[in-house]
Design a protein around this nucleic acid. Structure first.
Lengths: 144, 144
DNA sequence: CGCGAATGGTTGCGCGCGCAACCATCCGCG
DNA sequence: CGCGGATGGTTGCGCGCGCAACCATTCGCG
């Protein structure tokens, strides 16, 4: 063996993956159970709710989602009557995506749930550590 | 909107997911390119290399992998001649999985790459912060 | 001993995903 | 104007995944 002292529990990508799975799956269960939504759909919904109407490309840049994911997520949200599309006059290739009333309701509901989830997490880690954690993750994710 | 000040960039599960994607995909490119391995296969290989022969169930407990993932990963690694199976005498339902020579070589190679990757990451975050990050992630992942 | 529950592992199925190819529209430059 | 490349978005394809159902073996308890 090359480096017998190198433990997987000290390998940050592994820890990120496991911690991410634990956290994401737990919250994913909420929007999946309540609205039958996928993770991509949740991210799109959240971005539209939080930052207002925008195009698919803008969502992609903000939400770190591949355009195919967005395309399929938007179609699914459209079928749920959560979002509306409107072709832009100034560039008829792109469309303005906006939340409809049911979408806004779902956003408010899930936003509350997300805030509660985050609060529980902070309680577990402690406010200061949770803040530090977020700061480091933001750096890792190039989100600065 | 319910809580217009709740930003996604402060939502830990989101940050974990994005940071995890960035880190995992970057390293995944290595074992995918060199050995055509999947993430599950890499985890199984690493555990067998690091901790020695064990059964699929033991890997599952250590590596946080669902048993179906392990089953398929083991079959793939077997086809690559990386692992061997041997039915246990004392319980003929389970089998002892062990690395073969090519598997050990791949483990050594990827272990070195992983250590280098981790070192670069530490250089970016600073040694102290990187250690804190790992500690918090371990707590989140229930790996204590 | 014998039967039902528990355990180790595999498999069929439907789904979300990433990739590459594609269509439509727009822009830049001769 | 017109043609080639760039851009916004969609789709076909193969794959890895999670779930539930399943097979074989073993365990627990009457």
């Amino acid at each position: 063996m090359a480096q017998p002292d190198f433990d997987l529990r000290d390998f940050t990508p592994y820890l990120l993956a496991v911690a991410g799975e634990v956290a994401s799956l737990e919250f994913a269960a909420v929007y999946k159970a309540r609205y039958g939504m996928t993770r991509s759909e949740w991210r799109v919904l959240f971005h539209l709710g939080r930052y207002g109407p925008m195009t698919a490309t803008e969502i992609g840049a903000r939400a770190r989602l591949h355009k195919t994911k967005i395309s399929r997520a938007v179609r699914a949200l459209e079928l749920k009557r959560f979002v509306s599309r409107e072709t832009l006059e100034e560039d008829r290739r792109s469309e303005r995506l906006a939340l409809r009333a049911p979408g806004r309701a779902a956003y408010a509901d899930l936003g509350t749930a997300a805030a509660a989830f985050e609060a529980r997490l902070e309680a577990r880690l402690g406010a200061e550590e949770a803040r530090d954690l977020r700061r480091m993750l933001r750096r890792l994710a190039d989100l600065d």
